[in-house]
Amino acid sequence: MKIRLVKNGLFTPVDHIEDTLAPPPEGFYWIDADLEDLIVLQPLFGMHDLAVEDCLNEEEQRPKIEVYESHYFIVINSIRFDDEEIFLRALNIFLGRHYIITVTQQKINELRSLKPVLWEQEVNHPDRFLYHLVDLVVDNYFLVGDRIEARIEKLEEDILMHTKKSHLTEIIGLRSEILWLKKVLGPQKEVIATLNKKELKLIDHQLQKYFSDIYENAVKIAETFETYRDLMGNLREAYQSSLAGRANEIMRVFTALTTIFMPLTFITGIYGMNFDYIPGLHVHGASYVLLGFMLLVGFGMFYIFRKKDWL
C-alpha cells in the first residue's frame, strides 16, 4: 500500500495510514492499495461491506457506481490487448471528500500514466483525480481499438493472399472477444453518464461538465466496436468465399488434367485390345512415335486451355 499527499500535483509520501483520516490543510490523500489492504482500510474509512466484497470476490466486475453516505464506490475496467486476447482489469475506486483510494488486483498502466498528468494539471482535489483517471482509461480503449483494427486488416490481407484453416480459428476467437467486450462497454458508458448527469455532492458541479467529453468518447468506442463486430462477420464471409474459390480452382486443375489424359487413355486403350492386326504394331520404332504423338496431344490441349484461360 502506497500513501501519498497530493498537493497541486506534487506527491509527498505519508508513512502512517492514521494520518489520512483527517483532511489535510491543502490537497488530498491518494491511497494506492492491494486487495489485502482492504482489511486495514475498511474499518478506518467505513467502507461498505458489499463494496469490499465486490473487490475481493470478482476478478472481472461489471462497471458500476454506488453512492454511500461518506464515499462513492466506483468500478471501471481498464483494457489491455496482447494480440491474442483482450484482458480487462477491474479498477476499484473509493472516493471521499479528502481522499481517493484505488484498489487493484493487477497492475494498471493508467495509474502509472496518471502521475505526470496530475503534476501538469496541478490537481488539488480527489474528484479531479477521478476525472483524469477515467479519461486515461477511456482513451486507452481507442489505442486498443486501433490495434484490433490493424489486426483485422492484416487478417483480411492474409485471407485474400493465402487462406489457411487457422484463419477461421482467429476469426472466431477475435469475434468472441469483441462481442464479450461490447457487453462490458454498455455498463461502463452508464457509469460515465452518471458521473456526468447525476447530482453527486462529492464531485464539483463545474467538473461534471467535463465528464460529458469522456461520455462522448465512450459512445464512440461502443460504436467502433460495433463496427468491428460487423467487420468480423464480413471477414468470415471472405474466408468462406476464399475457400470456395480455392476449391473451385483445384477442381479446375483436376478437371483439366482429366480432360488432357482422356485422349491418351483412349490411344493406350486401343493398343491394349487383343487384335492380331493393329496399324504400326510391327513397325520398328512405332512405340516411340506413339509416345511422341501422345505428348504432342497432351501439350497441345494444355496450350489450348491456357490460351482460353481455363487454367
Rank of each mutant, 00 (worst) to 15 (best):
A51E: 10
I221K: 09
D146M: 09
G9M: 05
H205N: 13
R229M: 07
V253G: 06
F211A: 03
E149C: 02
A150Q: 13
S212P: 05
D135F: 08
Q188A: 07
K201D: 13
D309Y: 11
I31S: 01
V14C: 00
Y131N: 08
T20C: 13
P116Y: 11
K2R: 12
G46N: 12
N8A: 12
I203H: 01
L111E: 09
C55V: 09
F94V: 08
K220F: 12
D82I: 06
V144N: 03
P263I: 10
W180S: 15
L10P: 00
F302Y: 11
D34L: 03
P25F: 10
L133M: 08
M232L: 15
H48E: 11
L88H: 01
T12D: 12
P24C: 04
I17Q: 04
V67F: 04
D204K: 07
L181I: 05
E120D: 14
D32M: 01
E26G: 08
L231G: 00
I304P: 00
I270S: 00
N57P: 03
K182H: 10
L5N: 02
F142W: 08
E84Y: 01
G9V: 02
K198Y: 02
A90T: 15
R80F: 13
K307L: 12
T265W: 04
Q105G: 03
T255S: 15
D49E: 14
P13N: 14
H167W: 08
T163F: 00
C55N: 05
S70G: 08
D15E: 15
D32F: 00
D127W: 05
W180C: 05
I260Y: 02
A90K: 03
A222S: 15
F28T: 09
R128D: 11
G298H: 10
E110A: 14
Y215V: 00
E66L: 10
T227H: 13
D82S: 05
E110H: 01
K164D: 06
F266T: 08
N196S: 14
G233F: 06
H205R: 14
E199Y: 08
D49R: 15
K201F: 09
N8W: 06
E59M: 03
E69L: 09
K115H: 12
F81D: 06
T265E: 07
I267E: 02
I76G: 02
L10D: 10
A244W: 03
F81G: 06
D276Y: 03
K189P: 02
L174M: 07
K209N: 13
H98Q: 11
R89Y: 04
D37W: 01
N8L: 13
I152E: 05
I171K: 06
L185T: 08
H71M: 07
L235V: 04
L281K: 12
W180D: 14
M1E: 04
G245S: 15
L118M: 14
T20K: 02
H48F: 11
L295W: 07
